[in-house]
Design a protein around this nucleic acid. Structure first.
Lengths: 216, 216
DNA sequence: TAGATTGTTAATCGATTAACAATC
DNA sequence: TAGATTGTTAATCGATTAACAATC
């Protein structure tokens, strides 16, 4: 079952989640003007097993050279293409509270195929202002701006109680992908994709790990 | 292989990650004064399969009653105990930038066994102030305060380049758990547990899902 | 009682890991 | 050439799902 570049063999989710880390290492190598990178280069830096890295690389469709590894630029582009990060998508943030503001301040999104073009908040003290250079609009303007600008991704950083309502409005306006930071499971039609971020999950894992250690 | 409550049969990571969602539903039921909750109650609200919820519940050590389900209060306490959230742990945040401030503003941590007691930042304009009621100290005070207050958890929200250095200092001062929001893989001794949060992973998943849909 | 729901054992599925031949 | 590294097939591992008996 060889992985031809365009044939979109279903890529395992864990592999997709590791791709951004590979990208980060690749960018370092590129800045150091290194031409080749091997699976051991990756595995050492990321504490992964070389075999796992090799399997992951297969999904990019790029062929390596024994003894040398993979060509840095070629692999970089292939991973970007695999993730759909070769063309950046326009996104808006709904909810300019603490978390929303933090995301607006994150400069790295351009590296990750995302361009934040506007924020929305129903607090009149916030809307009208700019946060980290990005304009905050009142919630009424949501649908209009999404449609006029053809936005495809919506980021939800509103409190729990408003998550579903905002999702419905985003979808109605034509959004196709939702990055959901509210702790509710959103109900969406099949053509809309949702990625939920859940800090509590990570905290639970840390807590259990710390307590397990106590046992041993 | 029955799951006795205290025997700490290794709980699968995916199960641990789902626990906080169960907790959220349970709290809703408790507020509505409902005495019983069934796996179908959970599965409907969280879009999980009933069988998966049932398997997860087994790890809490709580026995249900056919036709009724589980006792809300009993299950709530059992999950809190399983996650180690029955006693809250003191934590500090290093890096009071956009993301650090956002976390400082999150009120929900007390529900998740965490108590933020202080923040640290090397920017003299920030240190000395309070963010969301929590004091920000200069970085020099880091070790002293951790030791004096017996802090066990450190949250790292500094830029990539300082992640490892801060981790080293935290560990030296006695921290046993690190919640790492910087995009570096930290090198830590075995007794220190690290949970890394990686927004780029989630974004990668969303992006791939959205592009896959285009294919079909 | 009837039937919804639990608890448990077995089957399936998917990802990780191992083994090893191919190759620069 | 020798040996590090790739690519591929097979084995293992762990989580999810299915099936079904037990029970309130």
């Amino acid at each position: 079952m060889s992985q031809s570049p365009q044939s979109f063999t279903h890529i395992p989710l864990p592999t997709i989640r590791r791709m951004p880390s590979y990208l980060r290492i690749l960018q370092e190598f590129q800045q150091e003007n290194k031409e080749w990178i091997s699976t051991t280069d990756f595995s050492g830096r990321l504490s992964l097993k070389p075999i796992q890295v090799r399997k992951d690389m297969a999904y990019t469709g790029i062929q390596g050279k024994p003894r040398l590894g993979f060509e840095v630029n070629e692999l970089l582009n292939a991973i970007r293409r695999t993730l759909g990060w070769d063309n950046s998508a326009d996104a808006i943030i709904v909810g300019a509270g603490a978390l929303g503001s933090a995301l607006l301040g994150y400069k790295g999104f351009s590296e990750h195929g995302l361009k934040l073009v506007a924020a929305f908040d129903n607090n009149p003290e916030v809307s009208g202002s700019k946060i980290h250079g990005i304009e905050v609009f009142p919630l009424e303007k949501l649908e209009d701006l999404i449609q006029r600008m053809g936005i495809t991704i919506g980021i939800i950083t509103v409190p729990e109680d408003f998550g579903q309502e905002i999702a419905d409005r985003l979808i109605n306006a034509g959004i196709r992908g939702i990055w959901n930071f509210s702790p509710v499971k959103l109900k969406v039609p099949g053509h809309v994709k949702v990625q939920k971020e859940d800090l509590a999950s990570g905290l639970a894992v840390l807590s259990v790990m710390m307590h397990q250690e106590d046992q041993e």
